[in-house]
Nucleic acid binder design. Structure first.
Lengths: 264, 264
DNA sequence: ATGGAGGGTTGACCCAGGGTCAAGGTCAAG
DNA sequence: CTTGACCTTGACCCTGGGTCAACCCTCCAT
């Protein structure tokens, strides 16, 4: 006959686990000796091995109880179902590994390789690292919002960067981080942006970015709060009849309505 | 700016989870509006997406914190390690699936196919179902104790069953379950057993069964308590100078010492 | 101004599957 | 007789939140 620790050793579980199984009624309480110690026989060993076999397969203890006390067919059905769950778990695991690999390759976290390449291109152009971080965070949000469309969006951004005016715009915005909000060069940025937007309007690009308005508002307010210069720039644009930043639109009062471009 | 439920909706987590992250310090508490509501910016969204990306990979939240606050290399190392763990998890999962398959094919639980075949063979010989259940439980224990050697042991058992004397022995033992402990036929069982053991001794089989003594004792005490007949049989054998059941030995006082056979 | 719906806030308890500690009884050996 | 190893029960702790309760805040319609 066995003490609890011997039983535990035989079956490869902890003493605590055995007592836990007693408490939840999974393993019957055995007889006690005159000093109150539990004394186990082979039946307990067998039951415990069965319990562990199922529990190691990830079956919750409550279900283990049901299975062990069930008949042959019910048991077989249960095992089939458990195996199906294990297969699903294996699929999930493969999936996770893929995501994790992409994550390790990305710009610190959770970005597709294309986006990382785009950020590197900005970096290569001499854009300020602080601005690149803002861009990166924005892309993380976009990736979270519309993961399926991000490839198309980033491809469009790459094309935009082929335009020298766009490059100049990025460099100016990046430099502007340290300007005073009164700096007259801010107007120059607004000039370039207006020209870029007019051109985008003509070409008909960016008709639908797939982002919802609340999301766009959030990005805009983040931009607005990033620096006094940004605030000033947006104010100038608003005076000229534009509205927004992430998704720029002609303000309703202006002549040509609904024109949209973007600075995601 | 976002309320907590908007933040949760953006990042695909529950409101409760967000608050949980605040409590464990994984996500910084944001500013509150004048009525005490939490107000979030894009920074929280980004942080939360990063958290979920790692957490979905099975990283414990405590470790997520460490990773997110770490530098590039440390982060990359961490991800590598996590991937290693995921691979190990996948291995474990395959292993479990194998065990589960064997379990479903086995005699209700956790027995290799060979053992099931052996039990079926006993059944075919007309051995009492109660005895077969005892055998099955014993095999479950053996499978738990020496899983790597069970194939060899069961093969030996199959060979033993080719001996008509062994078959007779099994049938008698099976019948004996209902006898009175005074039944004279019990001596007949002892006779057969003695002969079998002498033969096993000569052939030199079963020199080392790989079971430890405590385990053998447990099996013996189970046998002893199974019925008064078993008790009587063991007493007779003891009178004749044998000891044990699972691993039968010549008692020290007897002429030829150390002979061992078995009735696993 | 008032009532109700639908947000938000905190706090407390609950789950698996035990780990860990505490306070005390028991047992075998020296 | 003491010591150390074992046993007993009970209580609190962990992760990653779910669920419920009680109450506050805001907004909208009346």
């Amino acid at each position: 006959m066995l003490t609890i620790s011997q039983l535990a050793a035989y079956t490869g579980v902890t003493v605590r686990a055995v007592r836990h199984y007693h408490r939840i009624g999974l393993l019957a309480e055995p007889a006690r000796d005159r000093s109150g110690y539990r004394i186990y026989g082979a039946d307990a060993v067998v039951r415990l091995i069965r319990i562990r076999t199922l529990a190691d397969a990830g079956v919750p203890l409550a279900r283990v109880q049901g299975l062990l006390d069930a008949g042959e067919e019910e048991f077989r059905d249960g095992v089939r179902e458990i195996d199906k769950e294990l297969r699903a778990e294996a699929r999930r695991l493969r999936n996770t590994r893929t995501r994790l690999a992409r994550l390790a390759a990305g710009d610190h976290l959770a970005l597709p390789q294309d986006v990382v390449a785009y950020l590197d291109r900005l970096r290569g152009l001499g854009v300020d690292e602080r601005y690149i971080e803002m861009e990166r965070d924005a892309w993380i949000m976009i990736a979270g919002q519309v993961p399926d469309r991000i490839d198309a969006v980033i491809a469009e951004k790459h094309r935009e960067l082929d335009d020298p005016a766009m490059v100049e715009f990025y460099l100016l915005v990046s430099e502007a981080l340290d300007w005073s909000p009164d700096d007259p060069r801010i107007a120059r940025i607004a000039d370039i942006l207006e020209e870029l937007m007019m051109r985008a309007l003509e070409s008909g690009a960016l008709q639908d970015d797939g982002l919802d308005q609340a999301f766009v508002d959030l990005m805009d307010s983040t931009m607005l709060e990033s620096s006094p210069v940004a605030e000033r720039l947006l104010a100038i644009l608003e005076e000229r009849g534009w509205r927004g930043w992430t998704r720029v639109e002609r303000a309703p009062s202006a002549k040509s309505g609904g024109a949209r471009s973007g600075n995601g």
